[in-house]
């Protein structure tokens, strides 16, 4: 079986700073990581490979330094890594990104065999759109299973798969035909630590590097800025509230005095809350 996993290298959002004057992201010193959501997809892919045999190819579109993340994925045990990198891709929005990735996956199918499953993460922590997965599925005409929390029966010969999918208010159990695109829900597994053998192999492996042409992209107008229907017009820092908090001290009072003062402050500002709470208290008492 062949599985393709799309991973993205992202700046660690916990460490991002915004330039106070220009409002641009200060990348200086901000480490990059594999989008944490993608690790769930990768681990799930590795488990399926370990069970059914075959190969896992990781794919990313990004700048040359995204190779680091691919190599990392190899350390975890992926078999092959493809880096899609070309200056034409700069400024891609989700539509252009999914076009490029879908084309690259088509090319991967030709060169390394057709994948039964393409995995993506649920979403990225920088783009945060959850759109690229569905976009790839549509372009490759793959059936789409988003927010998958569990992979059930996989019948390679019969070409079918059963999954549990997180939906609003419950879990859908779905059955469909291969090939599929799965976006994996977070928290579904724990990323393994690669063995020394995997780590050494990863350090030596050749990462396949494709430009737009190599990936079989002919229509450059569908790439990058030109291929992106959306345009970012303005980037700005969220404005804080202008009025400052009213502080109520605790230490100089008895708990009773303090409690009464705080409740009073709350009700004074939000009379509606007082009514709600009283109503609730009465219902509760009646009950």
């Amino acid at each position: 079986m062949h599985i393709v996993v799309c991973i993205k290298q992202v700046p660690d959002s916990a460490q991002i700073r915004v330039h106070p004057v220009t409002n641009t992201i200060m990348r200086q010193g901000v480490p990059t990581i594999i989008n944490p959501y993608d690790l769930f997809a990768l681990e799930e892919a590795l488990r399926l490979r370990d069970k059914f045999g075959g190969e896992v190819t990781v794919l990313t579109m990004g700048p040359p330094m995204a190779e680091d993340s691919l190599r990392r994925a190899l350390t975890y045990g992926a078999d092959r890594a493809v880096l899609l990198t070309d200056r034409f891709f700069a400024g891609s929005d989700t539509l252009a990104t999914s076009f490029a990735l879908a084309t690259a996956i088509a090319r991967i199918s030709e060169v390394y065999g057709k994948p039964e499953i393409v995995f993506t993460g649920k979403q990225t922590i920088d783009g945060d759109t959850a759109q690229v997965g569905p976009g790839i599925a549509k372009r490759l005409d793959l059936l789409q299973l988003t927010y998958v929390s569990k992979i059930g029966k996989l019948d390679l010969d019969g070409g079918s798969i059963e999954v549990e999918r997180r939906a609003e208010g419950g879990v859908q159990v779905l059955k469909t035909r291969l090939p599929v695109l799965i976006t994996m829900l977070e928290g579904t597994n724990d990323m393994r630590r690669g063995s020394m053998k995997d780590a050494l192999r990863a350090a030596r492996a050749e990462v396949v590097k494709w430009g737009a042409k190599d990936a079989g992209i002919e229509d450059m107008t569908k790439c990058g800025l030109r291929g992106s229907p959306t345009v970012v017009k303005r980037v700005f820092a969220p404005g804080g509230r202008t009025d400052k908090a009213e502080f109520i001290t605790f230490t100089d009072k008895t708990p009773i005095e303090f409690g009464d003062e705080l409740v009073e402050a709350i009700f004074k500002r939000q009379p509606a809350v007082e009514d709600d709470l009283i109503k609730h208290a009465h219902e509760f008492a009646a009950y």
Binding site: R193, G194, S195, M196, K197, A199
Partner: peptide
């Protein structure tokens, strides 16, 4: 010895 499986070099 390292902290990975199979880690003696």
């Amino acid at each position: 010895r390292v902290d990975r499986e199979g880690g003696k070099i």
